[in-house]
Simulated scan of single mutants.
Amino acid sequence: MMVGMAGLEGMQQSQRRAPAARPGPLDEAALKALDLCGNPSVDEVRLPSRPESAATARRLTESVCLGTWGLSAQLAEHAVLLVSELVGNAVRHTGARTFGLRMLRRRGWIRIEVRDPSRGLPCLMPVREMDTSGRGLFLVDKLADRWGVDLLPRGKSTWFEMRVADR
């Protein structure tokens, strides 16, 4: 999904969350996840390769995108969805005991990586209307500006990048 810089800046101004006097339940969960696991924008966070780790990865992503980086709510929502898809693939298809989550920001872009010890490459499959699974990389392909896989000496890093307006 491509949004012009002017459109993204307008979205950012209109959809930025106002600071709350007291965090809500999700905000508290996100803060707790940061405290327990660490900040993936500072250093890679290792999580157990279990389905429930997807919720932790979503909370960490939301906390960094909204709290640390101050991105728009819509951009954060897309990043959270895509992280969930990449984590789901790592948990379901790699047989790993753990996976890593890392988030990077550079001028005009964010990059989110999910690292696992498998060298098996994910495949973007054609999606039909009635399919009930296999839509993860399809969503990544549609919502991210770029995505890919980097083979590492021990495993791989599946990543996506999204354009962001600089402050």
Rank of each mutant, 00 (worst) to 15 (best):
residue 5 M to L: 14
residue 8 L to E: 12
residue 9 E to H: 08
residue 10 G to Y: 08
residue 11 M to H: 11
residue 12 Q to A: 14
residue 13 Q to P: 01
residue 15 Q to G: 08
residue 18 A to F: 13
residue 19 P to Y: 00
residue 20 A to F: 05
residue 20 A to W: 02
residue 23 P to L: 06
residue 24 G to D: 15
residue 24 G to A: 11
residue 25 P to W: 13
residue 27 D to G: 14
residue 28 E to N: 09
residue 29 A to W: 10
residue 30 A to I: 01
residue 32 K to G: 07
residue 40 P to K: 12
residue 42 V to F: 04
residue 42 V to R: 14
residue 43 D to M: 08
residue 44 E to T: 14
residue 45 V to M: 06
residue 48 P to E: 10
residue 49 S to F: 00
residue 58 R to W: 09
residue 60 L to Y: 08
residue 60 L to P: 10
residue 62 E to I: 00
residue 64 V to K: 03
residue 64 V to L: 09
residue 66 L to D: 03
residue 71 L to W: 11
residue 71 L to N: 11
residue 72 S to C: 10
residue 74 Q to Y: 05
residue 76 A to L: 00
residue 76 A to W: 10
residue 77 E to R: 15
residue 79 A to H: 04
residue 80 V to N: 07
residue 83 V to S: 14
residue 87 V to F: 00
residue 87 V to L: 09
residue 87 V to Q: 08
residue 90 A to G: 14
residue 95 G to L: 03
residue 95 G to N: 07
residue 95 G to V: 06
residue 97 R to F: 08
residue 101 L to Q: 05
residue 102 R to G: 05
residue 104 L to Q: 15
residue 104 L to F: 11
residue 106 R to G: 13
residue 109 W to R: 14
residue 113 E to Y: 01
residue 114 V to A: 04
residue 115 R to Y: 01
residue 115 R to Q: 14
residue 116 D to L: 04
residue 117 P to G: 05
residue 117 P to A: 10
residue 120 G to H: 11
residue 121 L to Y: 03
residue 122 P to E: 02
residue 123 C to Y: 03
residue 124 L to I: 04
residue 124 L to K: 04
residue 126 P to S: 02
residue 128 R to I: 00
residue 131 D to V: 01
residue 132 T to R: 14
residue 133 S to Y: 13
residue 134 G to P: 02
residue 135 R to D: 00
residue 136 G to H: 04
residue 137 L to I: 02
residue 139 L to S: 08
residue 140 V to M: 02
residue 141 D to T: 03
residue 142 K to M: 10
residue 146 R to V: 07
residue 147 W to N: 09
residue 148 G to Y: 06
residue 149 V to H: 03
residue 149 V to K: 03
residue 150 D to L: 08
residue 151 L to T: 04
residue 153 P to Y: 06
residue 154 R to I: 06
residue 155 G to T: 01
residue 156 K to F: 02
residue 158 T to R: 10
residue 159 W to L: 04
residue 160 F to E: 07
residue 161 E to C: 04
residue 161 E to N: 04
residue 161 E to D: 06
residue 164 V to T: 12
residue 165 A to D: 06
residue 165 A to K: 08
residue 165 A to W: 02
